[in-house]
Design a protein around this nucleic acid. Sequence first.
DNA 1: GGCAATCCTATGCATGATGCATAGTTAGGC
DNA 2: GCCTAACTATGCATCATGCATAGGATTGCC
Lengths: 173, 173
Amino acid sequence: MTRDLEKLRLENILGAMSLALVDKMEKAFGTETGLGPSAVAAVIQIGSNPGLSIETLRRFIALTHSATVRLVDHLVEQGLVLRGEGTEGDRRSKALRLTDKGDDVFGRNLAARRGVIERAVGALNPEETLSLGQLVEKLLPALVDMGDDQNVVCRVCDEAACVRERCPISHMA
Amino acid sequence: MTRDLEKLRLENILGAMSLALVDKMEKAFGTETGLGPSAVAAVIQIGSNPGLSIETLRRFIALTHSATVRLVDHLVEQGLVLRGEGTEGDRRSKALRLTDKGDDVFGRNLAARRGVIERAVGALNPEETLSLGQLVEKLLPALVDMGDDQNVVCRVCDEAACVRERCPISHMA
DNA sequence: GGCAATCCTATGCATGATGCATAGTTAGGC
DNA sequence: GCCTAACTATGCATCATGCATAGGATTGCC
């Protein structure tokens, strides 16, 4: 009984912590680069997968096609993204790439995200950090439904920090 | 060196897990009650603190006053919230309360949230769950800045599951 | 006891993000 | 060479939100 109450209490705190972390990341994105969540996700995905099409991007960031077009329009206007010609020999689609300025924003967004997480984890000692990481790694797959939108959780991930062979998401399919 | 890479990898996964959890909670709110994130936060706060004023609510859910007024308008139209008269003898403010229907939505939102977290934590055994909870509890305060908006992280918390004396947030000031 | 400052609520207006429906363009098979 | 499928783009509508402003109640000071 008391045990169940304690479990509920800790689960509630897990929810609060996740919300706090996401809030702080989005706030950091905003103050660092002035972009909203969707724009940040777009920049990070284009930066991580240069040359991808709008349609592919759309699936990563979980938006409608039209919303993605407008978002890319906006990023192009801001000088962050270029619409190249043709993806992989298919001239229907436009290969999206970051400009130098976009690449800078890309890096600053990832740095801001890393900073937020590091500061949080700074409250733990090295063993605790490792232990937390392993638990989270084990828990993550239970949070992701298989399918088209399975990559959406990776929309602001730091690809440089992700080892594909050990990524619980890539590992699912 | 390798140790640092592994730390980065696990921190990245912590970020991904948090995002996935928040995504799933918001999706669950939507499918369960059809409300968006702000509306859910409002219902939960009004349910947890009946009689509060719009101004107080505004601080909990991190919106402008005007946005909060419109949001409450909408909730009243939907028959979820009542604008009473006077908070604590101050007839300027309106005491906000949930209708029976609102109370039902309140409960279903919290249940949906609990369900999402429980399903995730279900991937761990009891000791792991306890261990994760304790780590998260230790880490949470490092994520919250003191001040007016310090309660914002609690905007969708389950008060019934929260023991105030042990809440890292209440404990900060 | 009255007046000014303060605080709460409400509303007009503007904007940004997004979805739906539709139209234009290119590829590739038959 | 044509038809279907897939990708891109745009017109239109809607919703959430912020800023600026206005109105009404409370409090405190004189």
